Computed example of a mutant assay.
Amino acid sequence: MNETLDPGSWQYRGLNARAPSLSTLADTLNALADEGHPVVAVTADLQYSNGLIGFARKHPERLFQFGISEQNMVSAAAGLATTGFMPFTATFASFLALLCCEQIRTDIAYSALPVRLIGHHAGISLGFYGTSHHATEDLAIMRSIADLTVVSTADGAQFAAAIRASMTWPQPIYFRIARGHDPVVYEKPAPFEFGKAIIHEEGNDLTIIACGTMVHPSVEAVKRLRSAGRRVGLIDMHTIKPLDREAIIAASRRSKCLMTVEEHNVLGGLGGAVAEVLADLGGAPRLVRHGIMDEYSLIAPPTHLYAHYELDAKGIESRALAAIANQGLS
């Protein structure tokens, strides 16, 4: 898809490129470049949708524009990394993870190059653009690639912290972010450490393990559940790989049931990763995987889709209550 718009406007087909997470990308890269880090940005004709136009205006020599040739873009990013640069390569998550899977695996991960892949507008956040533009398989694909770190941040502040932390991280990274309209979960500066989950609450009845866009509605759902006397915990599992196994094991010993929440197919993503840890333990508590149930996502405004799939606060609360009831705890 080609991107055309008035250069004086930040509005593109209803998407606001100045929204928190996406402006964060340009703002953080500008700061890192000013500090002397060898960062460059690479995109496929989406510099307005991902906010990299803000980086291009300040550091025009550091933005590489490839048009709608995403596979070439990823291979070129690998080439840039061999010359001492740290490329941040950004396009829609559906294109990056699916279309460019071979280039990510062979040119970047197999070659152990410090490329940072930014899959934006992930999950079902592109709404009316259609199922072909929804990314509900990307976590499963990316976490199956050896030596590739996979991160799904909750908001702009956490994304900025993750970008900064990546300056000293040895592996290539796939960052999964949403549209950039993310509600605030963390104040700046946000806590972030690769492979170290953030414990919001501890609970004996149920622990919700969420990632990315699902952290904020999970926070709201847990507030309601706890105010009603339910002993429900919440973990922000921002790093899908390497996974914080210790946090999962601790929650499994504390809670009678675990529930993963993700804007992704329930197969292979966060739910699959947690299930693998619990299977290794043997005799672990029941796990409920909440997300998109192995189907192609529908076409509608994102808000309608979140309600339909019960991925809003109300839906997550309802699923949590059902999980608690199934344990005989209601």
Rank of each mutant, 00 (worst) to 15 (best):
N2R: 13
E3C: 06
L5Q: 06
S9G: 10
Q11N: 12
R13Y: 11
R13I: 08
A17I: 00
A17C: 14
P20K: 05
S21D: 02
L22D: 00
T24K: 00
A26L: 09
D27W: 06
A31E: 15
A33S: 14
A33N: 01
D34I: 03
E35P: 02
H37M: 08
A41G: 15
V42Y: 06
A44I: 07
Y48N: 11
I53N: 02
I53Y: 10
A56Q: 11
K58Y: 01
P60D: 12
P60I: 07
R62Y: 11
G67W: 11
I68G: 04
E70H: 09
Q71C: 12
A77H: 03
G79W: 08
G84L: 07
F85W: 09
P87C: 02
T91I: 13
T91M: 12
F92G: 03
F95L: 05
F95Y: 13
L96N: 04
C100V: 12
C100A: 13
R105E: 11
T106D: 13
T106W: 05
I108D: 03
S111I: 00
R116N: 10
I118V: 15
H121K: 00
G123C: 10
I124Y: 01
I124E: 00
I124R: 02
L126D: 00
G127M: 02
Y129I: 00
G130Y: 02
S132A: 14
H133G: 04
A135V: 11
A140V: 06
S144C: 14
L148C: 09
V151A: 03
S152A: 15
A157F: 11
F159L: 15
F159T: 10
A160W: 05
A161L: 12
I163M: 14
M167L: 15
P170A: 14
Q171V: 03
Y174N: 09
F175R: 05
D182A: 13
D182R: 03
V185D: 04
V185Y: 04
F194D: 00
G195M: 11
G203E: 07
L206W: 09
L206E: 09
G212N: 02
T213L: 15
M214D: 02
P217C: 07
S218R: 08
E220Q: 14
A221G: 08
K223Y: 09
R226H: 11
R230M: 08
R230K: 15
R230F: 14
G233I: 09
L234C: 09
D236G: 11
M237E: 08
H238C: 12
T239R: 05
A247P: 01
A247S: 14
I248N: 01
I248F: 01
A250K: 12
L258C: 06
T260C: 10
V261R: 04
H264L: 03
H264C: 04
L270N: 03
A275W: 06
A275F: 04
L281Q: 13
P285W: 10
R286P: 04
R286G: 01
R289M: 13
R289F: 06
G291D: 01
D294I: 04
S297M: 01
L298Y: 07
A300Q: 03
H304C: 01
H304Y: 07
K314L: 13
K314Q: 15
S318E: 14
R319E: 11
L321E: 13
Q327S: 08
G328Y: 12
G328S: 10
